[in-house]
Simulated scan of single mutants.
Amino acid sequence: MGHWWERNIVEPGKLPLLLALTAFVVTFVVTRVITRLIRAGKGPFGNVRAGGLHIHHVVPGVLLTVVGGFGAVASARHGAAAVLSAVVFGMGVGLVLDEFALILHLDDVYWSEEGRKSVEVVVLTAALVGLLLAGFVPFGVNDLSQEELADRGTVISNIALNFVFSLVSLSKGKTRVAIFGAVVPLVALVGAIRLARPGSPWARRFYGRRPRARARAVLRAYRHDRRWAGPRRVLQDWIGGKPDPRPARLPGRH
């Protein structure tokens, strides 16, 4: 175990990244537990207010992110300062992304349906950082031999090709695939060759005069959403808490 730790974490300089990821996940989990207790009216916790103003935890999150980020740059990933900066940075990012939906909508949507975006972003971020820890690097240029690394043309070609695949996936309305594809090349390739989602820039550009392709895209998107929407919502509710029900609309009001 000690040999594995030295070879895979310490020697490659991944300890700060591991600590940042751990602090990020722990901070998010603790924050969600506290906010759910506050929501249920249990425990000693309550909303932080100053002069009648509700201070969202994204505010200290931004401060911690700034301090940890600049600390990491100044420490150059060496010594106790790098370790401390990584932990502070991870805590800050955890607080900020827990209220990502609030920043996106510029509204307090924490317990609304729109608030699910925060959980999605947190899970996606944790997964991507986990891939980086596992040895994957953006655009899939890891695991190259010394000869291939010496050939800059090969490296640049790999990066450019995978970047194109990720852009195609993004234009097809597959944001998650495009993001993961920047790290795992096969994911980007699969996203690039499959049908685009209805309403995406790719579908509007290339399916406008192809009714059969448009119909197949709609059917595939419907089947995909029907299959995964339920499990995804259950997972999001388990992680972040169930959103408040939408208020019923009164007749004649929009």
Results as ranks from 00 to 15, higher is better:
residue 90 G to W: 09
residue 35 T to D: 12
residue 86 A to G: 14
residue 81 A to R: 05
residue 203 A to D: 15
residue 176 R to V: 12
residue 64 L to P: 00
residue 80 A to K: 07
residue 46 G to L: 02
residue 161 L to E: 12
residue 24 F to W: 12
residue 218 V to Y: 09
residue 116 R to G: 15
residue 53 L to R: 07
residue 108 D to N: 14
residue 139 F to L: 15
residue 131 L to D: 04
residue 88 V to S: 10
residue 172 K to A: 12
residue 23 A to C: 06
residue 158 N to E: 00
residue 94 G to P: 01
residue 59 V to G: 06
residue 64 L to Y: 13
residue 70 F to S: 04
residue 150 A to F: 08
residue 9 I to S: 02
residue 119 V to H: 08
residue 248 A to I: 05
residue 132 L to V: 09
residue 252 G to C: 04
residue 13 G to V: 01
residue 106 L to H: 13
residue 2 G to V: 10
residue 182 A to S: 15
residue 45 F to C: 06
residue 141 V to A: 12
residue 69 G to L: 03
residue 64 L to A: 15
residue 140 G to R: 02
residue 80 A to Q: 07
residue 43 G to V: 05
residue 100 F to R: 02
residue 54 H to P: 00
residue 184 V to N: 04
residue 6 E to F: 11
residue 207 Y to A: 07
residue 54 H to N: 11
residue 81 A to G: 06
residue 91 M to K: 06
residue 147 E to W: 04
residue 117 K to I: 11
residue 105 H to W: 15
residue 135 G to T: 04
residue 122 V to M: 12
residue 247 P to C: 08
residue 62 V to W: 13
residue 44 P to D: 09
residue 218 V to R: 15
residue 221 A to I: 01
residue 86 A to Q: 03
residue 146 Q to F: 11
residue 179 I to S: 09
residue 169 S to Y: 06
residue 252 G to S: 05
residue 206 F to I: 04
residue 221 A to P: 00
residue 53 L to C: 04
residue 231 P to S: 15
residue 14 K to W: 01
residue 184 V to G: 10
residue 114 E to Y: 08
residue 224 H to A: 14
residue 213 A to R: 13
residue 86 A to K: 09
residue 120 E to W: 11
residue 73 V to C: 00
residue 169 S to N: 03
residue 104 L to V: 12
residue 62 V to M: 15
residue 6 E to L: 10
residue 147 E to Y: 07
residue 241 G to M: 06
residue 197 R to K: 14
residue 232 R to Q: 05
residue 7 R to N: 11
residue 244 D to W: 02
residue 130 G to W: 06
residue 147 E to F: 13
residue 140 G to E: 01
residue 220 R to G: 01
residue 40 A to I: 03
residue 193 I to K: 05
residue 174 K to L: 15
residue 142 N to R: 07
residue 45 F to K: 02
residue 21 L to M: 11
residue 13 G to T: 11
residue 125 T to K: 03
residue 194 R to M: 14
residue 92 G to Q: 06
residue 211 P to I: 01
residue 61 G to I: 02
residue 8 N to L: 04
residue 12 P to T: 10
residue 19 L to S: 03
residue 194 R to S: 13
residue 122 V to N: 06
residue 50 A to S: 13
residue 30 V to G: 01
residue 238 W to I: 07
residue 111 W to T: 12
residue 89 F to C: 09
residue 253 R to T: 15
